[in-house]
Structure formats: C-alpha cells, structure tokens
Design a binder for these strands. Sequence first.
DNA 1: TATTTTCTTGATAAGTCGGTCGTGATAAGG
DNA 2: CCTTATCACGACCGACTTATCAAGAAAATA
Lengths: 176, 176
Amino acid sequence: MLCLSQTCGYAILALSCLHECGGRWVLAREIARCTGIPQPYLSKVLHSLTRRGLIVAKRGYQGGFALARAPHQISLLDVAEAIDGAQAVPRCLLGLADCSPERACPTHRFWQREREHIMAELRRLTLVEVAQFERQDGTWLGSCHPRNSRHANRRRSARTATVNGRSRHRDGGNRS
Amino acid sequence: MLCLSQTCGYAILALSCLHECGGRWVLAREIARCTGIPQPYLSKVLHSLTRRGLIVAKRGYQGGFALARAPHQISLLDVAEAIDGAQAVPRCLLGLADCSPERACPTHRFWQREREHIMAELRRLTLVEVAQFERQDGTWLGSCHPRNSRHANRRRSARTATVNGRSRHRDGGNRS
DNA sequence: TATTTTCTTGATAAGTCGGTCGTGATAAGG
DNA sequence: CCTTATCACGACCGACTTATCAAGAAAATA
C-alpha cells in the first residue's frame, strides 16, 4: 500500500489540532475527542512526537501538549520522518537494499523523480498550509474551536475497512 | 512508510523475471534464484498473481509459470492492484474513511493531485518499459538469461533493514 | 505536605505481513 | 498405471503495528 502509516496520519491530525487550538495547553483527551483517534494510542503517538521535539508536554494540573515550534516550521515531512524514521519515503519503491543508479531496480528512475516530487510537496506543506485548506474547505478540524463542535468525534476507520476488503480480496473468494 | 508493500515489490520483480525469460515456462525455483526472493513466499505471491490472471501456471513435469498477457499489457498499477487490492494507492493519505472534497482531511488537495500523478506513472510503466530501463542500465535482472548469471542470487533485505532501523529509532535509544 | 491532575511507560493482546513447511493435486513420460 | 516433477494451499511462526489498561512520576495548588 502506497501510503503513510496510520500512526503518521494520527500524528498529522494531532498536530493540526494543536495548531487549531492556538498556543494553549491541550489535553490528550481533548485531542482524542477532536480527532477521533483512540486516546490510549494517541498518548503514545504524542509521546513520541515529544521525544522527537515536535511538541512539548507539561504534566500535572493545567498541563497538556503544545507545538514546540511555530506552525510554519512543522512540515508534513517533519512529521513523517519523526514517526516513520528518516526513510519515511524510501529510496527504492520495491524495497531493495542496494538500489542505486549503477545497479537500479526496474522502477528506479521513475521513483527517483516521483520521490523528489512527493518529498518537495511534503516539505512545502506545513501546519499553516494545512490549516488554510481546512478553513477554505470548512472541514472538521475546525471543531477544535470551542464554539464550533458539531463535527467532533468523527472516527477514522478507513484503514481498517480497506485492510479487511483487501484480505477478502486476496485469500478468500474467487478461487475459480 | 510511503511505499508499496514488499509483497508487491516481489511481484514486480517476479513478473519482470518472467518477461526476461521470454515466453517459456519458468519454475518458481528459477524465479526465486534469479530475483533473490525466498522461494516458499514467492510461491504464494505467484499463486495470487495466477488467481488475479496476470500469469498462468502449469503443473507437473516441464511446468512452471508464464505471463498471461503481452508484457506491454501488464502495468505496475495492475500488479499493485492485484496484490494490494483496488486501493493500492489510497484516496486519503491519512487513511480517513470519509475524506472527500466536501469533507476533506488536511492533506486532501495535495494528495488528490499527487495520487493522480503517481497512478498515471504506474499505469504508463509496463513490463516493457521496465525491461528497457534494465537494458539501458545493465542491471541485474538480465541474469535471468542463461548466459548472463553473474548477478544472480542478490538478496533484498532493504525493507527488513529499514524496519529495524526504524524501530530502533522509535522505541529504543535516545529517550533523553 | 497532601491532593489532584496529567503525562509516562510497561505489560499485554489482536491483527496483518513476511516467511517456512508439508501434504495434496495434477500433469507428463515411461 | 506408476513415478516424477511441479504447483496449490492450509497450518503455522515471529515480528511489527495498532490498540488497551493500569501503575508510576511529576507538576500545580491548596
């Protein structure tokens, strides 16, 4: 599956939520409610974002999480690399260890171009751009604002559904 | 990780190998040797490619596998969808179920464009283009030809290495 | 200092993916 | 018909990802 890990998706949503909430300390519980991410798991994601220096945590009464840098300094690539490691967008589409210009896999040239393009876009898109899109589209992360909570608690079961569908595809059924 | 599944990478390599071998029935064992894919697992991959109609299998003495269609009619997208299902390149980068123009996730617009681009390229790249690249680059799949077997048995441990590296990144170490 | 709040972190579990093995089915040739 | 070569396919395993829960540590406040 050519896509980010679900954990990475969670991280992007959580950071966007923090940005929407604008500067104040936000509880893990609030982020979970706002984004629909299961709270216990979100805690772990937030923790690893803390370790990677993208957000800061404050324990105890009136604590919570906040962005560690200005929103325009947090790109989607930063998030992807914080979660999935430096090779969040791997060099070889097929996963070969020694795929290089001299010893290329069949998709090497195509992917080299495509990868650059994807990385450039992920680098360009920061939390600010993301928030702009949201405002233009009137989408759901706006529900982080106290006065606008009609969209809250929207769950994200896409990956699960897809995965189920896929395994049905692959092993079950049509064994003509 | 923004990349194809390892199984899908295997499938592409196996099909390229079949194409290189040009028409004749090729044993699973030969494909495994030529590509470096572990043979028992390759058998499963080949089996599912057979079910999805990309290759044909022949049992018994002098059996093996062969492409089911002309090489220029097998695109990388065909392979990806055969292995990972119709949503091999998912509609929402973050894995949201109800991500649509009206109710978009923060990355919806970017990904809509990017996804089209990726799919178009995967659709354009068939086994023929792949083989052309190989010939130009003088790369290893040529070892499928009997007279050119110096590159055979090259293993592909990239994904494994990356995954190890990643988990070291994520949980072990630097818990400052 | 005691209490409350909140993040931290380890134990645990289910599901999927990558990988192995062995048995059964089937095709060709003697 | 028997043997041999080969794919088909189910059982199984370990690792990783996603997810849950609960006990522990730290910070603020009374």
